[in-house]
Design a protein around this nucleic acid. Structure first.
Length: 373
DNA sequence: TAGACGTGGTT
DNA sequence: TAACCAAGTCT
């Protein structure tokens, strides 16, 4: 691992910030240093690319222009604004934190990274990003870019998939952060990490900090950072029920305990749940019979199920791969949902609800088949 | 600590 | 296609 002298650190800061001032990106959340703007953008940018975030950020600020507006927002509006961005707990935590700010902090922002971490959804990276960009605290914001950039510049061998590695990087980067412009320094590292020093197809040859890049000097750019792999997602089979009546489609809101909490979808039944007793043969016909029986006894709904043509619909999450086999049922007369926690939604109004991607895929399949009839 | 937690883009 | 990546946090 490389060690930089005080002189080298000075030169690095100067080179980096000169490049940033000249070539840094003009992004909507960089127009000012308002902590609300910085905060919302940082949350949206977690595990999400800049180009994806931009339109969401602009719509979000139009809909929820202040911390107070966010704190008081209707949750359905919030989830709808976040639809498609993923990691939906970010949206729920954002609102909870806004309520913390209003009620516990009386609208006065905490100004240090240590205090900012008390806000729900604000971890070590985001706290340092807000503290440095909005309040000028001299701390490194160690995200994936900072891990990659400094691992390469300094040939740091630690596995960045290990949580404890963050502390090592914090300790190493802390003395390098420009004490005059910590926010600009941190954002410059991110811009570097998403341009010349990307994970794939980097261009270290033309990097403004090439002279400081030990991995380039050694011809080992792609050896850094060191990162162990995560296990493959597990396949989870579901049945998705397209149930229609004169009142529309039967939709259910996912509970707070489930993935995609608060979002709406057709009823989704894990196939394993139908076979808990360990029946030898798990045929489609057997599962349909079990489903029909369960809905009759549990919900007083008499389903006549029909398989929907086509292969199961697949959707891959970070840790699971859902394979949804669609089944349909139609009621000539709209039955009561007194014993079922869902609602009938007219076709034209479905889009007003917050919907996850898997629901859009199911609707698309159904619409395609519907047209062919 | 390791696994849960979404989606879109690239190779 | 499968695998991996993208401004992480929570439990």
């Amino acid at each position: 691992m490389e060690q930089w002298s005080a002189t080298t650190i000075q030169a690095f800061r100067q080179t980096l910030l000169a490049w940033y001032d000249q070539s840094g990106r003009d992004l909507p959340w960089r127009r000012d240093q308002d902590p609300y703007h910085v905060w919302v953008s940082e949350i949206m940018l977690q595990q999400t690319q800049v180009n994806t975030v931009i339109p969401y950020y602009q719509r979000f600020m139009a809909a929820f222009p202040t911390v107070t507006a966010l704190a008081e927002a209707d949750q359905a509006d919030l989830l709808k604004a976040w639809q498609g961005l993923g990691y939906y707990s970010r949206a729920r935590n954002l609102q909870r934190a806004a309520q913390q700010l209003v009620h516990d902090y009386h609208g006065v922002w905490p100004r240090t990274a240590a205090e900012l971490q008390d806000l729900v959804g604000v971890g070590p990276y985001t706290a340092c990003a807000i503290a440095s960009i909005a309040f000028g605290e001299v701390v490194p914001a160690v995200d994936g870019n900072a891990f990659r950039v400094f691992a390469r510049l300094l040939l740091i061998d630690a596995d960045i998939a290990q949580p404890k590695t963050r502390q090592l990087f914090m300790k190493i980067i802390q003395p390098i952060v420009d004490p005059q412009r910590p926010g600009a320094f941190n954002q410059a590292i991110m811009d570097l990490g998403s341009s010349y020093m990307t994970a794939k197809n980097p261009d270290p040859e033309h990097s403004p900090v090439r002279a400081f890049d030990a991995s380039y000097r050694e011809g080992r750019v792609l050896d850094y950072p060191v990162k162990t792999k995560k296990p493959r997602p597990k396949i989870v089979p579901y049945y998705g029920l397209v149930i229609t009546s004169p009142a529309g489609y039967l939709l259910v809101q996912r509970t707070a305990q489930q993935m995609l909490a608060g979002y709406w979808s057709y009823p989704l039944i894990p196939q394993d749940q139908l076979r808990e007793s360990g029946t030898a043969s798990a045929t489609l016909a057997a599962d349909m019979a079990t489903l029909t029986q369960r809905w009759a006894t549990d919900h007083h709904l008499a389903l006549t199920l029909t398989p929907v043509a086509g292969k199961p619909i697949q959707h891959t999450y970070t840790h699971q791969r859902w394979r949804v086999t669609l089944l349909s049922a139609h009621f000539e007369q709209t039955p009561s949902l007194a014993l079922y926690p869902g609602k009938w939604v007219p076709a034209a109004q479905i889009d007003q609800l917050p919907l996850p991607k898997i629901q859009e895929k199911m609707m698309q399949r159904w619409a395609t088949l519907d047209r062919e009839k």
